[in-house]
Design a protein around this nucleic acid. Sequence first.
DNA 1: CAGTGACTATGCTCCACAGGCATGGACGAT
DNA 2: ATCGTCCATGCCTGTGGAGCATAGTCACTG
Lengths: 290, 290
Amino acid sequence: MDDVELRHLRALDAVAEAGTITAAAASLHMTQPALSRTLAQLEARVGVRLVDRSSRHLALTGPGTTLLEHGRAILSHLDAALADTRAESRPLRLGYTCAVLGQQTVPLLRAWRRTHPGTPLDVVRRDNATAGLATGETDVAVLRTLPEDPRIRSEALYTEDRVAALPDDHPLAGRDSVLLAELTAGPPLPLPLAMWPEAGTASPELWPPQARPARTVEVGNVDEWLNLIATGGAFGVASAGTAESHGHPGVRFLPVSDAPPATVYVSYPHHPTHPGTAEFLTAVRDTVSG
Amino acid sequence: MDDVELRHLRALDAVAEAGTITAAAASLHMTQPALSRTLAQLEARVGVRLVDRSSRHLALTGPGTTLLEHGRAILSHLDAALADTRAESRPLRLGYTCAVLGQQTVPLLRAWRRTHPGTPLDVVRRDNATAGLATGETDVAVLRTLPEDPRIRSEALYTEDRVAALPDDHPLAGRDSVLLAELTAGPPLPLPLAMWPEAGTASPELWPPQARPARTVEVGNVDEWLNLIATGGAFGVASAGTAESHGHPGVRFLPVSDAPPATVYVSYPHHPTHPGTAEFLTAVRDTVSG
DNA sequence: CAGTGACTATGCTCCACAGGCATGGACGAT
DNA sequence: ATCGTCCATGCCTGTGGAGCATAGTCACTG
């Protein structure tokens, strides 16, 4: 008694849908006697007559329709629950363009693995402005530029100092630090500014009008950026996190004393593409604050 | 694959609740290996690791907690569905004090039986102002007085003419109709007005000041009311429906030409005591209008 | 009115599987 | 090293869900 199972609800649904037990049985890929018995069993367990049936007529009773509606809701709720669960077990894809959280990256990954053993974290580099968020390739991203896409929400985490990236045979490469104006003034000729990975590195906020670089060069990703600099074809400006993550032979990083710090953001789609997004955000907040 | 059953959800719930598989198994009145297997089977069917477990540690994964929450909701939804269904299969108790719907009573009962084969209708007389609604003895009621209880909702159905009930040896009993003033004027002495079943029969709206009855007598129910009148101890005023339902030897009913008609109401508790209440109301409306 | 077709209920059988028992393995505590 | 605790696995049994065959019911039809 009282052990109503999902198959009972499915049986009631199919019968209501098909109009006859025989047809319903076919739609459930089973035989008519089996379904007839399942229905009778359901009625016995609920203790209520649910379907008014004879050889020529079939209709749900009042309680029958009530249970049918609830049953359908329950079944679709179960489907949704399974979909949610599976979605959450899919790896959470964390995007970045040039660096994640610097020193705190490893603590973050460890904390996540410990507190969320069921959902692996894929840390992937995507060489575009939103680190794959806009294309759905990633579920969350760490960015050093505020994205303009209105469907992407962002949250500031902390700030990082700016560093200059110079060929190690550059005249300024031996200095302890440089000024913005020194970078664009030469010598002997000023190098072009390589425009990656920090998209904001040519913005008016960073470069005062009198020190703005004369020429810029766009590159596709951090590696190209580093190579271009190492071969003496350009200089770059990045944030400290980038320098920590990307040591490169032939490239020298040194602080820029007069540049305002860069802000690091976590960004995520307004409609999250992974159910663990919110949890990840709190994990990130905990890591950077703790 | 994908055939998640309720027992799986119950298993997950018990494990989360108990903290160990062994204890959870005990709470489910089964052995540890059985539950261990059920849990493993659930994970296999969902395709996701739900419980992080070793010999010394047990914790839900992220997807595990998600499924747990949904599962609990589903299980309690099922309980509620069964309760609702059973409640609806309980007979719907229709109360009345003196008459139901006159001529339309039988059509109503037949229509209900036809359209709602699962929920029987108990038609019961309750000798109080709300025909058992106020005490919870009935789920809906047909009344000829608007109840004052704020927890009871009412809806006017139609109106009925007023009739006088007189002893059949009364001087006026041979008439085709009477006026209110004739009833209270004698002869030889005016009889007292018997105050049942129509509670409103002594109200100022019915009796103009100059014709108001000098004396009234309260009785407990329709039968006492009829007996008192039949034995010549009183006269009464009722609505046509009452006269139709209660023929009585020694009592003569005849129209009161100058009395305003009585209104018949369906009443029901603001919080229905039976899930079929709303359906019954529409059945009543259909019957009286069609 | 017998025959037919459509539908449901029931008797019988089979086998898939849920659950019990026994055991093994992992791991922390004493 | 031993014990206690907890989970997993192998083996076995019994319940019960589902198929097949059949009987009963009812409307329609020639």
